[in-house]
Deep mutational scan, measured.
Amino acid sequence: PDLGLTQLFADPNLIENLKKNPKTSEMMKDPQLVAKLIGYKQNPQAIGQDLFTDPRLMTIMATLMGVDL
Rank of each mutant, 00 (worst) to 15 (best):
P1T: 15
P1E: 12
L3K: 13
G4L: 14
G4V: 13
G4F: 09
G4C: 09
L5M: 11
T6L: 14
T6V: 13
Q7D: 13
Q7M: 14
L8K: 05
L8M: 10
A10G: 10
A10M: 12
A10T: 12
D11E: 08
P12E: 11
P12L: 05
P12Q: 06
N13I: 04
L14G: 02
L14R: 01
E16M: 11
E16Y: 07
E16V: 07
E16H: 08
E16S: 08
N17L: 10
N17E: 09
N17D: 11
L18K: 00
L18T: 00
L18H: 00
L18C: 02
K19P: 00
K19Y: 06
K20E: 08
K20N: 11
K20G: 11
N21L: 03
N21D: 10
P22K: 06
P22V: 04
K23S: 12
K23Y: 06
T24V: 06
T24G: 01
T24Y: 04
S25I: 06
S25G: 08
E26Q: 08
E26N: 10
E26R: 03
E26G: 08
E26W: 03
M27F: 15
M27W: 07
M28H: 00
M28Y: 01
K29H: 09
K29Y: 04
D30Y: 01
D30A: 02
D30R: 01
P31R: 07
P31L: 08
Q32H: 09
Q32C: 04
L33K: 00
L33E: 00
L33S: 01
L33R: 00
L33Y: 02
L33H: 00
L33D: 00
L33C: 02
V34M: 04
V34Q: 06
V34F: 03
V34C: 06
A35K: 10
A35H: 10
L37C: 02
I38Q: 12
G39I: 09
G39Y: 15
Y40C: 02
K41Q: 13
K41W: 07
Q42P: 03
Q42D: 14
Q42G: 12
N43E: 06
N43F: 09
P44W: 09
P44T: 09
P44N: 04
A46I: 09
A46K: 09
I47Y: 11
I47W: 10
I47L: 15
G48S: 12
G48N: 14
G48L: 13
Q49M: 12
Q49G: 11
Q49V: 13
L51M: 15
L51D: 05
F52R: 15
F52A: 14
T53Q: 12
T53E: 12
T53G: 07
P55E: 11
P55C: 05
P55T: 09
R56N: 07
R56P: 03
R56W: 04
L57I: 13
M58D: 06
M58T: 10
T59R: 05
I60W: 02
M61G: 03
M61V: 15
A62R: 06
A62D: 04
A62K: 10
T63I: 15
T63P: 01
T63W: 05
L64C: 02
M65T: 12
M65E: 04
G66S: 10
G66M: 11
V67S: 12
D68K: 01
L69S: 15
L69D: 15
L69E: 15
